[in-house]
Design a protein around this nucleic acid. Structure first.
Length: 542
RNA sequence: GCGCCAGUAGCUCAAUCGGAUAGAGCAACAGCCUUCUAAGCUGUAGGUUAGUGGUUCGAGUCCACUCUGGCGUACCA
C-alpha cells in the first residue's frame, strides 16, 4: 500500500518539483474515518511555500493520478492532512498474497547477504539461569530471529569467562561441600555460593573421584566439574526455551592467542596508555571519555575492559555487517569504554548496536523479591517453565519494551487464566483451526475468487491489519523492538475475534463462506508466523 | 554530586521521524451462547500523560529545570 502511494508521489513530483524537497511520510491514522493512510506533506511545505496548507494539499491531490481500482477516495482533512482510502478490492488482495506465500509471508530479503552476530545471555557459569537472565535470553533470541526474517544470516553467540574471582569462589564452594560430604564438619562462609546445586556438584565429584581430592586445589578439578555441570544445565535451560547458540566464546582464548597482549602493545606504542600506581591506564580522556580507566590492575590481571575490547576486535575481524550486544542495565556503564577502545584501534563502531534492557522486578505475594545467585534466593528459569510453560515465559519476557522495567508477577503468570495474553493469541489460532476442521466436513473449501465480496466492516478491518504485518516485522527488526510483534499480534487477534463474532461461515451462502474461509486461513498463517518469530507455539486445539 | 533508563486510567502496559478525539488487557459494573471453541464479543465507568516553563500550525513524544523510582558511577564483570 505504502509502495503504491510512494509511486504516486514520485510521479507527481515531476510536475510539483517542491515535493522532492521533503521526505514524504505516510502513517496510519488513529481514527478509522481518516482513511487508511495519511500524509502531512502539505503541512511540512507551508513554510517554504508560504501558502495555506489546505491549498497546498489540493495542489498535490490535483497532481496525483491514482488508479480508481486501487484508491477509492482522497480527501483533505483537518489542518491539511491528505487522507487516502483504498478500495476493498485492492485491500483484499493481501489474502491471496498470504496464502500463496504461507510460512514465508512476512519475511523480506532487504538484508540478504548481510551477516549479523547477536551476543546474549553471556552469564558466567556460576549457577543456573534465573529469571533475571531470562529476559536477556528471550529478547536476544527474538532479536536474532527478527534479523533472520529480514534477510540477515545470524550467529547467536554466548560469551563467557571461566577465570576470575567469581569462578574461584565457585571452586572453593564446591570443595567445601565435598569435604562436608566426607563427614568433615564445616562452616560454610556467607560469601560462598549457597545454592543446592553446589551440593549436587560436590556429590558428582565424590562419585567420580572418591575421597582422593581432599588436598586438591579448589581451582582444579572442583572448578572444572562445576563449570561443566553448570554449563550443561544452562544449555538445557536454553534448549527448553528453544534457544540454540551457534557458539560459546570463551574469554580464555583471547589470552591463549595473545590478543590481549597485542592490544596492550598497540595501546602502548600509540601512547594511548600509561602506567601509574603499578597499573596500566587507558587514556579515555583523549578518546572522548570522562576519565582514564585501568586496563591492567597492579596485580598484573587485566580488568574486564581489555578482554572486552579484544573480544570485539575478534568480532570485527569476523567481518560481520552488524554486531549486536545485549545486556542488562547493570552493564550500561561498561560499553562506552569498550567502544572507545575499539574505535581507537580503527574499527567501525557504528556496526555495533548495544541494546540495554532494564531489569525484571519479580513480584511474589505482592512483594518485590531481590534475587542473587550467590545467596541462592533465586527462581530459576527451569522452575518457571515447569510452573507456567515455556510459551508463557517467552511471551512475558518480550511483551514489553526492553527499556522499561518489567514487572513479573509470579502469581499472575501461574494463573493460566484469561488474564494471560498469550492464551488470547493462541485461542485465536485454535479457533481458526477449528473453523477449518468444521468447514471441511461441510464440504466447503477455501476460495480466492470472491474476496472482494468481503465488505463487512470487520472483514475490511482484517484486510487492513493483515496489510500491516510485513511492515511491522521490518520495523521491529530494524529497531530491535521485539515487543512490537507481540502488540501487533494482540491487535490482529482482537480484530479476528471481532470478525468471528460478526461474520459466520457455516450457514452462509457458499461463495461468501468460501471467501471467509480464505480470510480466516490468512489470519491463521499470520498468527502462526508471528508466534513463530517469538517461538511461541500455535496450537490447533485448546 | 554526575551519567543512563523510566514516570501515561485503580494495576500491568501501548501509542510507527512531533500529527487529528491518548488506546488495550486486567480489576469493577451491565449485557450476549438451541448453529463454526464464551480462553470470545458488546456496552458503562475510569486521564491536567509526575510538575513548571519553552520550541511551533500541532507536544505523551523535542528542549530546560524540578520531583519520584531503577541501574551505574571500581585496580568486580
Amino acid at each position: 500500500m505504502k509502495e503504491y502511494l510512494c509511486s504516486l508521489f514520485e510521479k507527481a513530483s515531476e510536475t510539483l518539483t517542491y515535493l522532492k524537497e521533503i521526505e514524504i511520510a505516510f502513517s496510519i491514522p488513529k481514527i478509522e474515518s481518516h482513511g487508511d493512510f495519511s500524509t502531512n506533506a502539505a503541512m511540512l511545505l507551508t513554510k517554504s511555500l508560504k501558502k495555506n496548507p489546505r491549498q497546498i494539499a489540493q495542489d498535490i491531490i490535483d497532481a496525483l493520478e491514482p488508479d480508481e481500482s486501487v484508491i477509492a477516495k482522497i480527501e483533505i482533512a483537518g489542518p491539511g492532512f491528505i487522507n487516502f482510502h483504498f478500495t476493498v478490492g485492492y485491500l483484499s488482495n493481501i489474502v491471496k498474497d498470504i496464502i500463496t506465500k504461507g510460512e514465508e509471508f512476512g519475511r523480506t530479503d532487504k538484508y540478504n547477504g548481510k551477516r549479523a552476530n547477536v551476543e546474549f545471555v553471556s552469564a558466567n557459569p556460576t549457577g543456573p539461569l534465573t529469571i533475571g537472565h531470562g529476559r536477556n535470553a528471550v529478547l536476544g533470541d527474538v532479536v536474532a530471529t527478527m534479523l533472520e526474517y529480514v534477510g540477515y544470516d545470524v550467529d547467536r553467540e554466548y560469551y563467557f569467562n571461566n577465570a576470575g574471582r567469581q569462578m574461584r569462589v565457585l571452586g572453593d564452594s564446591v570443595k567445601l561441600r565435598y569435604k562436608e560430604k566426607l563427614g568433615e564438619s564445616i562452616e560454610f562462609p556467607e560469601e560462598y555460593y549457597q545454592g543446592e546445586y553446589i551440593k549436587d556438584v560436590a556429590a558428582k565429584v565424590l562419585e567420580e573421584y572418591g575421597d582422593k581430592l581432599v588436598d586438591e586445589n579448589p581451582e582444579g578439578i572442583f572448578k572444572k566439574v562445576a563449570e561443566e555441570a553448570i554449563f550443561e544445565d544452562i544449555k538445557n535451560t536454553l534448549a527448553s526455551l528453544g534457544i540454540v547458540m551457534k557458539s560459546f566464546f570463551n574469554e580464555h582464548t583471547l589470552y591463549e592467542e595473545k590478543k590481549i597482549e597485542n592490544i596492550l602493545n598497540e595501546f602502548k606504542s600509540r601512547k594511548l596508555s600509561y602506567e601509574k600506581d603499578d597499573a596500566v591506564w587507558l587514556k579515555l580522556t583523549e578518546l572522548g571519555g570522562e576519565q582514564d580507566k585501568v586496563i591492567v590492575k597492579s596485580t598484573g590481571e587485566p580488568t574486564y575492559r581489555l578482554p572486552d575490547i579484544a573480544y570485539h576486535q575478534n568480532k570485527f575481524e569476523r567481518e560481520y555487517d552488524l554486531i549486536v550486544d545485549l545486556f542488562g542495565s547493570d552493564h550500561s556503564a561498561t560499553y562506552p569504554d569498550v567502544m572507545a577502545g575499539c574505535k581507537a584501534l580503527g574499527y567501525d563502531v557504528d556496526k555495533v548496536k548495544v541494546l540495554i534492557h532494564q531489569f525484571v522486578t519479580i513480584m511474589e505475594n505482592g512483594e518485590i523479591v531481590k534475587m542473587s545467585t550467590r545467596k541462592a534466593n533465586f527462581i530459576t528459569i527451569d522452575e518457571l517453565i515447569d510452573d507456567v510453560s515455556a510459551d508463557v515465559v517467552r511471551y512475558f519476557f518480550i511483551m514489553r519494551n526492553m527499556n522499561s522495567h518489567l514487572n513479573f508477577d509470579i502469581d499472575l503468570a501461574k494463573k493460566q487464566s484469561d488474564e494471560n495474553p498469550v492464551f488470547y493469541l493462541q485461542y485465536a489460532h485454535a479457533r481458526i483451526a477449528s473453523i477449518l476442521r468444521m468447514t471441511s466436513q461441510e464440504e466447503l473449501s477455501l476460495s480466492l475468487e470472491n474476496l472482494a465480496g468481503l465488505t463487512h466492516e470487520s472483514e475490511v478491518r482484517l484486510f487492513k491489519k493483515l496489510h500491516q504485518y510485513e511492515e511491522e516485522v521490518l520495523y521491529a527488526a530494524e529497531n530491535f523492538e521485539p515487543h512490537k510483534i507481540a502488540n501487533y499480534l494482540e491487535e490482529l487477534a482482537a480484530t479476528f475475534h471481532k470478525f468471528y463474532t460478526d461474520c459466520r461461515i457455516l450457514g452462509t451462502e457458499k461463495d461468501l463462506a468460501e471467501a471467509r474461509i480464505a480470510l480466516a486461513k490468512a489470519v491463521q498463517i499470520v498468527i502462526k508466523n508471528g508466534l513463530g518469530i517469538l517461538k511461541v507455539s500455535a496450537p490447533e486445539k485448546m
